[in-house]
Amino acid sequence: MNPATAAPDALREATVHQPAAQAALFAALGAPRHAYLFAGPPGSGKRAAARAFAAELLAAGAADPEDARRRALADPSPHPDLVWLAPQGTQHLVDEVRERVIVAAAYRPFEGARRVFVIEGAEALADEAQNALLKTLEEPAPFVHLVLITSEPAAVLETVRSRCQAVRFAPLGVEAVVARLSELELGADDEERRAGALLAGGDADRAAFLLGGQGRELRAGAQACVQAALSDELADAPWRALLAVAEAAGSQAGEAARAHLEALAADGGEGDGRRVRRRSREAEEATRRAARRVRTETLDLALALVAAWLRDLAALAEGAEHLALNADRIEELRAVPGMAAGGLDARRARAGAELVMDTRRRLDVNVGEELALEALVFRLESLLLRDA
């Protein structure tokens, strides 16, 4: 079979907006390497491509290729020869990497001819875990294939990167993200989908989040913060809505991490008392890390949305509304206090966006979140109104 002319549908669809990655993966099906590094920005389709590629690796040599492919494509997958690790929190658990990849890679496939191990978020592997992987990467069993997925290839050790075939993914264009959102039937209309794509900056996963319930709440909260600053009405503390969404998203991520680790513990059997206690401690820590990571990411997105609203106000003030990221809210942008009368200073709006970016940087060094957001909105009010 010539993989370039008989490429499977799932892999073709997963890489339709990534021609370079598509060409590399189609070619790889003929003689796959033992290790790959899928590298590119968040939301560029690496995860879907890795699952489709893994499905083809497992289908080759299987007694029933279609059934093997179908099970491997399921998420989560019931295929016994597909192991998929995702970080539960800010880092992968070293013991999980050892048990589910390094040790498991020594055992022959349960069925078919291959075993595939996918490590999502490879940048979240601690140095200890990456170094432990080296022997598996250097001397893999002939039936083993590893796929590492990362948005930060520089955070993966050079000794690991050099042993993997790189497959690069580019940022998605706006139209590609809009098409993906349409396929998922997300968004009320094309205008909202386009706004989500623009605000997400080519990250299809982030755009999908923005078109969901929590994403819409964040957009509304960001808009409320700017409008409150411009109207000198801060008594309702609009920034608290952003904190509430971040808290809810973090709690959901923490519970998902807990459920995942409990399922793994159940699969691994009861074990001795020491091992059970260690797993319990790991589950609690992973739950806290996952909740903290998602809460922080959601707050950062909230601030990016506040900055986008200010940027859009500056664009409209200068007659360039076609550059607005909130493309579905042009009328609301036109209606903000001062805009209709032509009194909004574009330079002050851009300076406000810089204040927001400064707050984003400060949150990276553990500044108190609520105090930082409150201070930001009051500073925006001073900049946009009182110092005029």
Rank of each mutant, 00 (worst) to 15 (best):
A4D: 05
D9N: 05
A10E: 13
A14W: 03
T15N: 08
A23M: 07
F26K: 00
L29A: 14
A35G: 07
F38Q: 12
P41M: 03
P41E: 00
G43T: 06
G45R: 11
G45S: 09
K46F: 01
A50E: 15
A52W: 01
A55V: 11
L58E: 08
P65A: 06
A68T: 06
R69E: 10
H79P: 03
H79L: 02
H79I: 00
V83D: 05
Q88V: 12
Q88S: 09
D95I: 01
R98N: 03
E99L: 02
F110D: 14
E111H: 03
F117G: 01
E120K: 11
A124I: 00
A126Q: 14
A126K: 12
D127G: 06
A129W: 01
A129H: 04
Q130R: 15
L133E: 03
P142G: 12
L146N: 14
I149Y: 09
T150W: 10
S151Q: 10
E152N: 13
P153Y: 01
A154S: 11
T159A: 07
R163Q: 05
A166R: 15
R168H: 13
F169L: 00
L172M: 07
V174S: 11
V174P: 09
A176T: 12
V177M: 04
A179N: 08
A179L: 15
R180I: 00
E183Y: 00
E185G: 11
E192M: 08
R193K: 00
L198S: 12
A200E: 08
L211A: 05
Q227L: 13
A229F: 07
E233N: 13
L234D: 06
A241N: 10
L243C: 09
A246G: 03
A246E: 09
E247F: 04
G250P: 11
A257W: 02
R258S: 08
L261V: 07
A263Q: 15
A265N: 08
D272Y: 03
D272C: 02
G273D: 03
R277H: 02
R277N: 02
S280D: 13
A286T: 14
R288V: 14
R289Y: 09
A291N: 02
R292T: 05
V294G: 14
R295L: 10
R295A: 10
R295P: 12
E297N: 05
D300G: 07
L305K: 08
A308T: 08
L313A: 05
L313S: 04
A314Y: 06
A314F: 08
L316W: 14
A317P: 12
G319Y: 15
G319F: 14
I330D: 13
E332L: 10
V336Y: 07
M339G: 05
A341W: 06
G343H: 04
D345Q: 11
R347I: 01
R347H: 07
G352V: 06
A353F: 11
L355N: 09
M357F: 15
M357C: 01
D358R: 15
R361K: 14
L363K: 13
D364Y: 06
E369N: 05
E369Q: 13
E370V: 01
A372R: 10
A375H: 09
A375E: 03
L376G: 01
V377R: 04
F378S: 08
R379I: 01
R379E: 13
E381K: 12
A388F: 13
